[in-house]
Design a protein around this nucleic acid. Structure first.
Lengths: 235, 235
DNA sequence: AATCTTTGCTTGTATATACAAGTCGTCTGT
DNA sequence: ACAGACGACTTGTATATACAAGCAAAGATT
């Protein structure tokens, strides 16, 4: 019934930190000291410390010891999900219109994002994602065809680019930027924006083991879309 | 010189997954099987699995076994940082103007966010964060005074609300939403926006052990600010 | 005095072992 | 035919131990 011992130790340490007994950058008792204090083996004490390090509460340094991490460095996180899953999870209808599917020469922005030299041929797709018939995202995607040669042969009405790319080139890394923008009139019409309505834009670059795979510009109507996230920092 | 053994096992498994030998939801060899295969103890094999579970690559279930997690569930993350640190890290001057510091009755939005009944008195502060003299964020913050009674006595020109709150009520949880909005003319003037320029708005709610502490509405000029993040999914 | 060595503490990796606890199929008794 | 007991296999927790590797300060050598 009792909580596992390493959780007791974790709680004890986080309490000390939260009540201020263990200040920022203060040295935490060593693994051996904790083992003695809690009458457990070093490996159990070690596990408590290890998990707190993973949570960003502590910092360890071989040979020196374990220390309280700086409080402000505990950055919180926001999850970025793909629009198709998001819509489906809301239990609403998701549909896609394929607006473009071509090869084109990379301009400087795309070339830099994909780590190619400007002018290299890349795959370009433009998709409009609809939720219950209403436009929710305009997806402009540029793909490195050297890494994903079959990209343009896909039918994206059946399988979204994100799903296809996850299969053929599993991601190892991603980078996102989020900004608020005003779009040109053609795009505004596509997204059925109201007058003066801004858009939330996500720039997403993804890498697989072999290199930079794709660069996407995801544009959402500001009035209909919110990016939402959640994170538990402690436990 | 050689990599530790548990990293070898991790790499072996991620390779199997990436090349498709281990499909989604497929059963991964048990800890004992891996220990036999790699001629190591069960604890070492277990560590490899544990770390892959923490990365979201695998899923474990006591009694059943370990399985490959669904690929799409690997949502990527975006870090949300506080503006003061961000500006200082760029090596630029950060300054704050305190525009308001009062008690007021919570309207419905604030009351819901803080888990209070509408009309409860809460602390309200409005700060304008400047980077090299240019407005970068308008921070409207509502604080549960029952949990942080000293809030309104602080001088926020010296210590930002975020820093103060981190000290007196260490966060255990945070929730964010991000949206693109058009603001009223008074706010537009404060942020020195161009005509029709949209804003990136972050809604941030934070909890400490004792309950919902604060609700903040952070408004950034769309032309001068981008939310940027990064995540390594693998290793 | 300056430099190298030793010693002791720390964390990091790895092993062998034990028992607890959850799941599932099988075997058994009714 | 059904229910329950049992056993096999899985992950979860905990211990005791060993050696490697990094760091720092005290001590020995130059």
């Amino acid at each position: 019934m009792a909580a596992p011992k390493f959780i007791e130790i974790k709680q004890h340490l986080t309490e000390l930190i939260e009540q201020g007994s263990l200040a920022e950058h203060a040295k935490v008792p060593s693994e051996n000291a904790l083992a003695a204090q809690f009458e457990c083996s070093r490996m159990t004490a070690r596990r408590a410390l290890t998990e707190l390090v993973e949570q960003g509460v502590l910092v360890r340094s071989q040979g020196q010891g374990t220390f309280v991490a700086s409080l402000k460095s505990q950055g919180s996180m926001l999850t970025i999900r793909n629009i198709a899953d998001e819509v489906k999870e809301r239990g609403r209808g998701h549909r896609v219109q394929v607006l473009a599917k071509t090869r084109l020469a990379a301009d400087t922005e795309v070339a830099i994002a994909l780590g190619l030299s400007p002018g290299t041929e890349v795959g370009h797709t433009a998709l409009l994602h609809l939720e219950e018939g209403l436009p929710m995202q305009l997806e402009h995607r540029y793909v490195n065809l050297a890494l994903v040669p079959g990209y343009l042969e896909q039918d994206f009405a059946l399988q979204t680019p994100h799903e296809y790319l996850s299969q053929v080139a599993p991601l190892t890394e991603a980078h996102h930027e989020v900004e608020a923008v005003v779009v040109d009139t053609a795009t505004a019409e596509l997204l059925q924006l109201g007058p003066g309505e801004p858009c939330l834009r996500i720039l997403r670059r993804t890498w697989s083991r072999s290199g930079a795979v794709s660069f996407a510009r995801l544009t959402h109507p500001g009035s209909r879309y919110r990016l939402g996230g959640h994170l538990v920092m402690d436990n």
